[in-house]
């Protein structure tokens, strides 16, 4: 009985390890992007934007919907997240990239997720 449990634990660890070595697929990037978007310590975008499946969303920014249609140019979207004050000095949205709240790579993952909305 005990041996069996140890074996089970061992195989779970093994599986985790192997998965860890598989390069990230687009699906994983989207999942990561989503958690960065929702994480209060990272994007916390929900504080201000309604987002599909997001609970207790704030409402001072526009809802994040139809992102591909509204932001066909990826750079425009990137710049809005990097530093919204470049467009609107009074923007209520924090300059996430410029002030180092999240990294360039993290913003790119967030964008992959936003493009599924």
């Amino acid at each position: 009985m005990f041996k069996l449990r140890v074996m089970k634990a061992f195989s779970i660890i093994l599986v985790i390890f192997t998965l860890g070595y598989v390069p990230l697929t687009l699906g994983d990037v989207v999942t990561e992007g989503k958690s960065l978007t929702f994480d209060r310590k990272k994007g916390n975008c929900l504080a201000c934007h309604a987002i599909e499946d997001g609970e207790l969303a704030g409402n001072n920014g526009p809802p994040l919907i139809a992102m591909k249609a509204r932001f066909p140019d990826r750079e425009v979207l990137f710049n809005q997240i990097w530093d919204p004050t470049a467009n609107n000095p009074n923007s209520y949205m924090p300059p996430f990239g410029k002030h180092g709240v999240i990294t360039r790579e993290e913003i790119n993952k967030i964008i992959e997720y936003l493009y599924t909305l």
């Binding site: 201000c48 704030g58 209520y92």
Partner: peptide, 13 residues
């Protein structure tokens, strides 16, 4: 920003 311009809007809850 919060207590004049965005007063009344929601930041999460």
């Amino acid at each position: 920003d919060c207590h004049v311009y965005q007063t009344g809007s929601k930041l999460r809850a």
